[in-house]
Nucleic acid binder design. Structure first.
Lengths: 168, 168
DNA sequence: TGCTTTTATCTCAACGTTGAAACTTTCAGT
DNA sequence: ACTGAAAGTTTCAACGTTGAGATAAAAGCA
């Protein structure tokens, strides 16, 4: 059994044999990158079916799981979505035009803008989530659950070390 | 110990308890996505230090590990880099301007264009690789090698299932 | 030899993200 | 109150990628 990354590492071992002992991180890192690409393409197809962008779906689910009143500040999205501020403004602009969310300036701090899920947005999210999780289960369905769990645990350690510990 | 993904899953369990048994794929998939983001940022900083773009570095190493004569067709890059044809054309245009690679149309099939590493490009790549692998080792250095290996193995299975089995 | 299909690459407009600068509001110190 | 620093968001130009279409060459077939 071998994948594209095995081929890549094989090439290095042949071309630069002296690097042999330094290639083990490639085995994980390159696969994380390639898996991300695969997931990304899959996600875009899924979102297109439902008429939303991948980034918009991210905003919808982030709002939905935050619980009532389904409203978060723009700043909260920066960490949750791991994108820059300009991207969030852009996403919200389009989603507001679609009627999925609305901007609410509340009195407490007039710098902040709360992004709030509209009723339409909430209903769409409920529909999307079911399909979304089915899709995930299908993608990983043929893998050993215990191994998936172990791999997730290792990635958690990496992310903790890198300080990816909070979404607020 | 918990990371951002634990927080996300925790929110879902609270908001939609009935989804509890369907959230296990999120534990892996969300971490692959977030780890990819972390790696991406790290890579950009690394590349900026050496005056190349992340996509350009990818082309350089792909050529280098392919072995003499360090020349590949544009099509070969599509699968290796998992990007579209327009992106490759764009990358090669810029790298040719920098003198890192050169386009060679050889007689056999005049449709194909071989992208060839220049001497300058090759020398730069040698320098970059040492730093690159040091960086990788530092990133994963605090993790248990056996666990890294196991996680890489699981991701390999996923990628095989998704047909990511060749770079040619 | 003609004709169609396939393969390989390039072109280009649309798109989303980045990152720095601008803007407004709030906070802290005096 | 006043002033400077900090925080939250928006603006905007530059950038790289996408994806469909164009172009050109090769292969298959009559």
């Amino acid at each position: 059994m071998s994948d594209a990354v095995d081929a890549i590492v094989g090439q290095w071992e042949k071309e630069r044999p002296e690097l042999r002992d330094d290639l083990w991180p490639v085995q994980l890192i390159a696969r994380v990158q390639r898996m991300n690409r695969v997931l990304d393409r899959e996600a875009k197809v899924f979102c297109a079916k439902h008429g939303v962008e991948w980034g918009e779906f991210d905003v919808l689910t982030t709002l939905r799981r935050s619980g009532p009143p389904y409203a978060l500040t723009a700043g909260a999205f920066l960490k949750a979505a791991m994108v820059t501020s300009g991207a969030i403004t852009n996403r919200i602009d389009k989603m507001e035009a679609k009627g999925l969310v609305e901007r609410v300036r509340d009195g407490a701090d007039r710098r902040t803008v709360r992004i709030k899920l509209t009723e339409h947005g909430k209903q769409l999210t409920e529909v999307l989530m079911a399909d979304h999780l089915n899709r995930y289960a299908r993608l990983l369905g043929d893998l050993d659950p215990a191994e998936v769990d172990a791999a997730a645990g290792l990635l958690r350690k990496f992310l903790e070390q890198q300080g990816d510990t909070s979404i607020t």
